[in-house]
């Protein structure tokens, strides 16, 4: 039978919880920001409120050519990511999300 090792005493856990909670100076994430964003002007042009695919009750006038040559076409940013190392712009948008 395996017994769980209680490495963490209640006191250690409690102090970690206290430290975490007391450092939360503002209300947690359950604010109304999301609602504002979805109902507000900020929504336009942003993908935050894009729900993914929806249904359709319309046909389409865009013709899809049923060719099989697609394996040899341009590969988008995959190639530049691996081969060129060409950073099309600043890395700032990538790093600013990393928590301090």
């Amino acid at each position: 039978m395996i017994t769980t090792r209680r490495v963490f005493s209640a006191a250690i856990l409690a102090s970690a919880v206290t430290a975490a909670v007391s450092s939360l100076s503002v209300a947690p994430a359950a604010a109304d920001d999301g609602k504002e964003k979805c109902y507000g002007v900020a929504m336009a042009g942003k993908n935050d409120c894009a729900a993914g695919a929806g249904t359709t009750c319309a046909g389409t006038s865009k013709v899809d050519f049923q060719g099989n040559s697609w394996k040899y076409v341009d590969k988008g940013t995959c190639t530049s990511m691996m081969l060129d190392g060409d950073r099309k712009g600043s890395l700032e948008p990538l790093t600013r999300d990393i928590p301090a």
Partner: peptide
Amino acid sequence: KPEHLDAIL
């Protein structure tokens, strides 16, 4: 269309 909501309101 959800993208119209702001304009509608």
